[in-house]
């Protein structure tokens, strides 16, 4: 969570570039999605630690409350949901790809939007669910928001279904049908995004309505 003086506000789905500069002038930059709804100067980023990464270990392990960093943003105008757009929305997240989609879910609530949202969120195990409590609460309280979790390695205790990869049947059942011409937002690791967008197109969705963001 960062306080950014003079933050101009953002659209859900936009990201920021974080730049770290060493004393010798060496500088490295990475993009991180904003997971918060617009809220004054406050910006929340979800950062997944990459073991041999140059930026994320610093953000996760070294940076502490009160430290300053260089942020540039908000940037990106393509992978964004605009509350004025009344088409239903299918969100598909893989792992930490939930971050920009969470910003959309939160903005929908804060704007009092009634656009119907369906979120399909793929994680390895129940422990890997980011924003777990908030999603459970929102699925109950936010009218018109459906949340479906898909576990690829281990399911919660007592689950009737075995773990498995997100497939055609799940997206067909828990996303909006293509005939409703929903806006689809897919975010996650590159392989996940490729697979999901191929499935959505195979299910008849117009590729122009399938917007993707890959983490690499």
């Amino acid at each position: 969570m960062f306080d950014v003086p003079g933050w101009p506000g953002h659209l859900p789905g936009q990201h920021v570039d974080v730049r770290l500069t060493a004393e010798d002038g060496y500088s490295v930059q990475r993009s991180y999605s904003i997971s918060s709804a617009p809220d004054g100067n406050r910006v929340e980023l979800a950062v997944q630690r990459v073991v041999d990464g140059e930026v994320s270990p610093y953000l996760c392990d070294v940076l502490s409350v009160g430290d300053k960093i260089e942020l540039r943003g908000p940037v990106g105008g393509w992978f964004v949901w605009r509350p004025a757009d009344q088409a239903p929305v299918t969100l598909v997240a893989g792992g930490s790809g939930i971050a920009p989609l969470m910003a959309m879910v939160r903005t929908r609530a804060s704007e009092g939007s009634r656009v119907p949202f369906r979120l399909v969120y793929s994680v390895r195990t129940p422990d890997d669910v980011l924003f777990a409590d908030e999603l459970r609460r929102r699925a109950r309280d936010d009218a018109g928001l459906d949340v479906r979790l898909v576990y690829t390695r281990q399911t919660p205790e007592g689950s009737p279904e075995p773990p498995g990869r997100l497939g055609v049947a799940t997206l067909n059942t828990y996303g909006w049908p293509a005939e409703f011409t929903p806006n689809c937002f897919v975010c996650g690791p590159t392989g996940f995004v490729e697979t999901v967008s191929d499935i959505l197109v195979a299910l008849g969705h117009d590729l122009r309505r399938v917007r993707t963001e890959r983490f690499g």
Binding site: H15, R72, G77, T190, G216
Partner: peptide
């Protein structure tokens, strides 16, 4: 290699 992201990542540098 599969080690790519997408054009969204260009936004900040191009906006400059």
């Amino acid at each position: 290699s599969d080690d790519h992201v997408d054009g969204n990542a260009l936004a900040g540098d191009l906006r400059e």
